[in-house]
Design a protein around this nucleic acid. Sequence first.
DNA 1: CGAGTGATTGACTGGTGTCAAACCCTGTGG
DNA 2: CCACAGGGTTTGACACCAGTCAATCACTCG
Lengths: 241, 241
Amino acid sequence: MEADKIVVNKLKEHSRLSADDIAEVRNFSFAQRELADHEDLIRQGDEPNLSVVVMSGWVARYHLLSGGQRQYLSFHMPGDWPDAQALFLDRMDHAVCAIGPALVAGVPHKELTRAISRRPALGFAIWRETLIDAAIFREAITNNSARSKPARMAHLFCELFYRARALGLVRDEQLRLPVSLVQLGEALGMAIATVNRTLVELRASRAVDFRSGMLTISNWQRLCAIGEFDPGFLHLNRQLR
Amino acid sequence: MEADKIVVNKLKEHSRLSADDIAEVRNFSFAQRELADHEDLIRQGDEPNLSVVVMSGWVARYHLLSGGQRQYLSFHMPGDWPDAQALFLDRMDHAVCAIGPALVAGVPHKELTRAISRRPALGFAIWRETLIDAAIFREAITNNSARSKPARMAHLFCELFYRARALGLVRDEQLRLPVSLVQLGEALGMAIATVNRTLVELRASRAVDFRSGMLTISNWQRLCAIGEFDPGFLHLNRQLR
DNA sequence: CGAGTGATTGACTGGTGTCAAACCCTGTGG
DNA sequence: CCACAGGGTTTGACACCAGTCAATCACTCG
């Protein structure tokens, strides 16, 4: 699919766009870039002059700590703007890397700000996109701080599954999610041993399975209950399930 | 101080505003509201039609979990817009309450969007404000997930102190911060016993003290080292210290 | 077939949550 | 002026979760 189509479809999940707004997106000069697994798209401290939208695959944001350890902050799928914030915050306070091979398309900041000044509604939609990001971050704070380990993992699975399904990435209740257990631990704030033990616990619940990069949800209701998942924080128009 | 002054001063910390932008802010019809300690300003699920700016005191955002427990997400001081996001996300996914007595001023969303459409640069400044919020959320994810308990607490102290100093709220290296240890635990994801034990540990470092709602920092460098604090994520123009 | 990466499991131990009690301080009322 | 209540703080005892370390297993790739 074309980059502009992906962008418009995604924005329409939460915002109303006029024909003029859409035309503005169509005029963007998207520059595609392929990423290999684990490849960094942007590094902490960079000052990019373009923002990218994910076209296919997964991309993740992460903090790099002084000890060299990583903290994954969020996962992004087609239509997401993982560095939209760079539009107004010069210096990256975190990095972005590919989770599995991915394809992204960049738009120069100058084009974006010009388009937004011309069509405020388009700016509001992208702004809303960044606000939903923030809501996801908030949920991650709560998830990693206040919930039990199984709930924590279940909640992340629910969130990713729910967002992916809205984009049509889910087939047969399965979602490709090429993260290792180490990365899962670096996202959820648990050691790899605990990640694995929690995983076997979740498998035993017969609600979900995750192995070799494939997330399979066999009982959505039960998984939501385990993870105390309520999709409200994603602020999507469409109600799924 | 007047509400418009507070808003403009705060926005100027990271954004450049023209005389016209400032005039636009001056035209806002701020509606003040006093809050008692612990009083909720907005509840989870609300759909407010105005956004508020903090005028004095503290305000905090929090999630309310199914078990009734709280997870504090961020703390806000004069000039902050703790619910700017409500401008574009209809339903609140979290609540906002006062930390100690506080004063806030609300602006109708209609006025805000009209002003932003008219003066894009003003919108960009407020957008940037919400993006800094998001950066603070990201830092909180990392803090509560990846750092040791003492580092976690030290980092929060550093963040609040740094932000407060930028606003001139710090006197004699002291900052009024009327939170209880329970609330501190609900922000940092630790049990109250641990909060206290961590606190005595930090006191022993002779870098910081926190008692009876007063935060005293006697060795900023050392506290930053303990908390692995780097103010870059706050994206402020001015360099302090 | 060997090397390497990731997943899995076990043993061990320290940290942290839970529970409970004591303490401190302030404001209130007899 | 003192007694008391109540909220917040501090400390201790204890159990257990979860991190660390290490060994083994499974699978892919050269």
